[in-house]
Design a protein around this nucleic acid. Structure first.
Length: 487
RNA sequence: GUGGCUAUAGUUCAAUGGUAGAACACGAGCUUGUGGCGCUUGUGACGAGGGUUCAAUUCCCUCUAGCCACCCCA
């Protein structure tokens, strides 16, 4: 005969020494650990990674919707590529000697012995897909919209995460300067419509040919008497490895030296100069504020001709940048919100077959959200009116469940808290979400075949026939609207 | 990767060489059928490890994490 367990014996069993031992890990001692580990027993977020919680998601919705809207208005088509790729892809496109590839890329050997990488930037993967799927057979240009996570092993700071999200647009197969302008326009609109003031920093670094000439000139300039000794250690290395980056240095002494350096704009070949002039003319026409920045050189190998970045407008409040006595062109450099440029040779170099000029840009969404928060930009409130359905007692709860479905199907924006028993708690919830009306269904109403409608603002309640509830609510909501309109 | 600052409830902040308080938030109640205000009450923290000390949350060191500047990038 199986032993029948009464309440006492269950309790006794449950707390028996053996059972207690089994449970020991769970509750005898509170686990102590790091802040993030308190509840997770040793697992906390990886450095530089971030959880997006409910309250933050409203910002993400705002920003993602804006990106979606703009991309579709300008006829960009959304696509996605894998998060991991062969590491060689980035070495060959982004550049073997760039910081992104050498210092920051998450790369590892997978089980097949292949070197793979978490994507550190978007363009190479999209270019790979363009080539791999023969998109050069589509009507050109191919305009691509992408949004997703990127990974770089950096030392984290606010606005610098090891996983961040970018909104990215690429135009494949178009050499016209109008393409460059279109991208800048979209980026500009994106920020402006989110009420973030930015300034477009723009430069042209020429094509292979004229850049080679310029670099020679630049080297000659730096070789002149005693200039090299004035440079910082990094720049001494740059002189050999990547002279263009000399322009980019923020050391005061290097800035002094470079002041008289030849400017790349003066060395552009006719094609490149005409292209750049056209870009600038269009920007003037469109009234997009830009700053011609001869020192803007981007850290990726594939750029040609136009390069640009979007810097936040400083000095609105509490801007420290000027007071430090630094040249104003440096302000905001460290927190660029977006950037991009033209890469006319990349697709062909990656196996595209024929010359395929292209350009693209990316915007860092975490930084955008940070700016939105920083500036307290008000989010649009939900305009639709909520109705809350409260119930009291088991019988009413059952009926309310059914009613809820009915009202939902009828298109009302209805909410509930059926797990709660007390009416007070339910009305609190209704208040918290800002419900316009609460419907209250209890024992009394069920007997009378009625239901209560409570106006949450005035507290005025009305008893109505249960069967006529839908019409009643419709009327109430409409009344509310006409009142609003008359205001 | 380099340098600096910081680390106390869920959040924002206190105090203290003798193991910690508040506000807000959250839960329960005041009201067994009524939210916003109020009152009562409860849960909840010294990032980790080591050292000095009779005694460390407090002083020192290391680690970890966050922030700031740089490098670089979005």
């Amino acid at each position: 005969m199986p032993k029948v367990l009464n309440k006492k014996s269950i309790k006794k069993n449950f707390f028996s020494p053996a059972n207690r031992e089994q449970q020991a890990g769970k509750w005898i001692k509170k686990e102590k650990g790091k802040k993030g580990e308190r509840r997770t027993k040793g697992f906390s977020r990886l450095r530089g990674m971030k959880d997006v919680l409910f309250d933050d998601y409203k910002y993400w919705d705002l920003v993602i919707n804006k990106a979606n809207d703009l991309a579709s208005v300008y006829s960009f088509k959304k696509m996605d590529t894998p998060v991991i790729e062969n590491a060689l892809l980035y070495e060959r496109s982004t550049g073997k000697n760039t910081d992104i590839v050498t210092k920051e890329m998450y790369s590892f050997i997978d089980k097949n012995g292949e070197k793979i990488a978490l994507r550190p930037e978007a363009t190479p993967g999209l270019v790979r897909a363009y080539v791999e799927h023969g998109m050069f057979n589509l009507p050109q240009p191919v305009k691509v919209f992408w949004l997703g996570p990127l990974f770089r092993h950096e030392k984290p700071q606010s606005g610098r995460l090891r996983q961040h999200t970018q909104f990215d647009l690429e135009i494949f197969g178009e050499e016209n300067a109008v393409a460059d302008v279109l991208l800048i326009l979209i980026a500009y609109n994106f920020f402006r419509e989110l009420q973030i003031n930015i300034q477009v920093q723009i430069n042209s670094i020429g094509c292979k040919e004229c850049r080679r000439e310029y670099v020679t000139k630049l080297m000659e300039f730096y070789k002149e008497r005693g200039k090299r000794s004035k440079l910082c250690d990094d720049c001494k290395k740059r002189l050999i490895k990547n002279p263009l980056r000399l322009l980019d240095c923020k050391e005061e002494k290097c800035i002094e030296v470079r002041a008289d350096a030849p400017q790349i704009v003066d060395s552009l070949c006719d094609t490149c100069r005409n292209h750049f002039v056209k870009v600038l003319e269009y920007l003037d026409e469109l009234d997009i504020p830009y700053n011609l920045n001869p020192f803007l050189v981007r850290g990726l190998d594939y750029y040609t001709k136009t390069v640009f970045e979007c810097w936040p407008e400083e000095n609105e409040e509490g801007g420290l940048s000027e007071s430090a006595g630094r040249p104003s062109e440096l302000a905001g450099r460290q927190s660029s919100l977006g950037g991009g440029g033209r890469y006319d040779d990349l697709i062909e170099d990656m196996g595209g077959g024929r010359p395929t000029p292209a350009c693209g840009f990316g915007i860092g969404l975490e930084r955008v959200i940070l700016k939105i928060k920083e500036k307290n930009i008000p989010l649009k409130k939900e305009t639709k009116d909520y109705i809350f359905l409260a119930q009291l007692g088991e019988q009413a709860r059952r009926k309310a469940f059914v009613l809820f479905e009915e009202l939902r199907r009828a298109g009302f924006n209805i909410r509930q808290a059926f797990t709660k028993d007390s009416l007070r708690v339910q009305l609190e919830e209704a208040d918290r979400i800002g419900a316009k009306f609460s419907l209250i269904l209890g024992q009394k109403e069920i007997i009378d075949e009625t239901i209560l409608i409570r106006d949450m603002e005035s507290g005025i309640q009305e008893i109505v026939n249960y069967k006529k509830i839908i019409g009643k609510i419709e009327k109430k909501l409409e009344n509310g609207k006409t009142k609003e309109d008359n205001k």
